[in-house]
Amino acid sequence: MPVASNPLKKALAERRLQLGLWLGLPTATTAELCGGAGFDWLLVDGEHAPFDIPTIAAQLRALEASTSHAVVRPPIGETWIIKQLLDIGAQSLLVPMVESAEQARALVSATRYPPRGIRGVGAALARASSYNRVGDYLATADNEICLLVQVETLKGLANIEEIAGIEGVDGIFIGPSDLAADMGHLGNPGHPKVQEAVRSGLERIIGSRQAAGILTADETLAQSYIDLGATFVAVGTDVTLLSRATAELAARFQNKRQSSTATQGY
């Protein structure tokens, strides 16, 4: 029995738009809830959110029955953690801070078994192979790995075409926040010069025949990236959605209370 096919990898290869949402709350309940919302993919953020291997595994389990495909972002593109993430069942990875073709090539190697790469063989103990119940896991796993690399510095932008040319890279994601910081506009990814660089980067990725991706909670901006040709676009985060919705609900009733008090006083 071969490993399960990767719907995100197939969709990106066919350049079909895939809409996503960021998961930063380390609870399986939140992941399960968001998994029923209708997004094509959900990003489990192991870089900036308080996740570890067990909590990421819990997210993957929560999303297993969902129609939303799970993508995991490790804190760093190191072989040891990539190996662990693949073994707990992640098929798609978004690796941050990729700046060169050499780095991208090393990441491809880390996600493939020998002789194509250097991934350690431990599938008999792993959730990825259903604990050795997927008999053809070792023979079929490589073909279903989706490797997305995140370009978020000026150095990375300068090397986009070279990164895009590495076989085994399935898409390139622009990180506006870190790019803004690298350009001297910390905390201001909407700065015109940053946005110019972002759009140029997306256009160069698309021109290199690669899938282009990005995250923004600004719906107008997200649509502009989609219109430009971006293929995998995250349009919000669970943290921001919850924070915004609770604040707006509280504010509405605080205003009603103040209006009521004012009327009674009159």
Rank of each mutant, 00 (worst) to 15 (best):
L228H: 00
L242H: 00
T246C: 00
P54C: 10
D87M: 03
S208E: 02
G122L: 11
N143M: 14
M1H: 15
G77P: 02
H69E: 04
L17V: 15
K9H: 01
S130T: 11
N255C: 02
K83S: 14
L179K: 10
L23A: 10
E248D: 07
L179S: 09
T216A: 08
S5M: 11
H185A: 08
W22T: 10
P192R: 04
I205W: 04
D178K: 13
A126V: 09
D182T: 14
S200Y: 14
A245M: 06
L157V: 14
P189Q: 04
R15A: 06
A217I: 01
A49K: 09
T79M: 04
L241Q: 09
Y225A: 10
V239P: 01
L43G: 08
F39P: 09
A62H: 08
G38S: 08
M97D: 07
P96E: 12
L138S: 03
H185F: 14
T261F: 02
I76F: 07
C146I: 11
A13M: 08
A11C: 13
G156A: 07
A11K: 12
N255M: 10
F51T: 04
Q18Y: 00
Y266F: 13
E32H: 12
A31N: 05
S5N: 08
L249H: 08
I206D: 02
L147W: 02
Q84W: 01
L249A: 14
E219N: 00
A13Q: 15
D227S: 09
I145P: 01
F51R: 03
N159C: 10
G165H: 08
T263W: 07
I53K: 05
